[in-house]
């Protein structure tokens, strides 16, 4: 564990405190916290951080919402061929993000022949350049990545729902609750720990997402979809500035560590409360 996790972390932290360029790798100059100070004052880093937050929250919200909805529908007694539907909804999750990204780029969002514009056309909407327009590229990226992440929440919520005894549904039905009232007043309170668990997984996954966005937009147009992971890649690989790339990566790690700690603390308290 120490070798697998500790050594790369220590190396990354060390590089983040140095000026390290790939073309001059042996000439590493200690900079202390200067790289961090520079990053935090750099408008591009701040913009990438904002984009990352919007992207992450968008993916978490969409993943939870659709995950709950689909799991709730799948759990309905009226659903036939349940294993088929569960398998179908899991396909995006087993697909490599970069392949999913390419598929969405060329088949879904493509302006002339894409499915989205074809559907929009039926309702009289103008064909849009979804991935080439600064106004819509981030939205399109969130939708595509949510498509990839939602199956995980479907799986967890469906498993959790299947443990809720039928008597509870029957009781709420007798009390006159409709499906959405049952969901809101009966099911959701029981699923709260699972929602928290899924949101941590989706949050950490979306926060560090690279492949899907890279395949969709490459971080563009302009910098409208440049999230922190893409910024770090651009600094480290394109610019060969491994010092700054590690500073960005380590900042991401620190942010995620804090967020995960908050989540775990809340999760623990919630479990203690319920027991």
């Amino acid at each position: 564990m120490l070798v697998i996790v500790g050594v790369p972390l220590a190396l990354g932290f060390r590089y983040s405190m140095h000026r390290v360029f790939l073309y001059d790798f042996n000439n590493q100059i200690f900079k202390g916290l200067d790289n961090y100070a520079y990053a935090l004052s750099d408008p591009l880093f701040i913009k990438a951080l904002n984009t990352t937050i919007i992207f992450t929250l968008g993916c978490v919200a969409t993943g939870i919402l659709f995950g709950l909805l689909v799991a709730f529908l799948l759990n309905s007694r009226k659903v036939r061929w349940r294993p088929f539907w569960v398998s179908l909804f899991l396909i995006p999750f087993v697909m490599t993000p970069v392949v999913g990204g390419i598929a969405w780029r060329f088949f879904m969002w493509q302006q002339e022949f894409g499915v989205i514009n074809a559907i929009g056309g039926i309702f009289g909407a103008d064909a849009r350049y979804w991935l080439l327009d600064r106004e819509t590229a981030l939205f399109a990226s969130i939708v595509s990545n949510s498509w990839h992440l939602t199956p995980l929440s479907i799986l967890v919520f469906y498993a959790a729902l299947s443990t809720i005894p039928d008597e509870l549904y029957d009781a709420s039905h007798i009390d006159g609750a409709g499906p959405f009232q049952t969901l809101w007043y009966v099911v959701l309170p029981l699923l709260r720990p699972h929602v928290l668990f899924v949101s941590v997984i989706l949050l950490t996954s979306a926060f560090r997402e690279f492949d899907m966005i890279w395949a969709l937009t490459g971080g563009g147009p302009g910098r409208s979809t440049t999230v922190l992971s893409i910024l770090a890649y651009n600094r480290g690989i394109a610019n060969q500035d491994m010092g700054m790339a590690n500073t960005i990566a380590f900042t991401m790690f620190a942010i995620m560590a804090v967020v995960a700690w908050i989540y775990i603390t809340i999760y623990r308290r919630m479990l203690e409360k319920s027991t």
């Binding site: 591009l44 600064r134 563009g220 147009p221 302009g222 910098r223 409208s224 651009n234 394109a238 610019n239």
Partner: peptide, 15 residues
């Protein structure tokens, strides 16, 4: 990469 950053920022209107 300086050119990349410069023209990307100007083209996108970020700077």
């Amino acid at each position: 990469n300086g050119t990349t950053d410069f023209i990307t920022d100007v083209y996108s209107g970020d700077l």
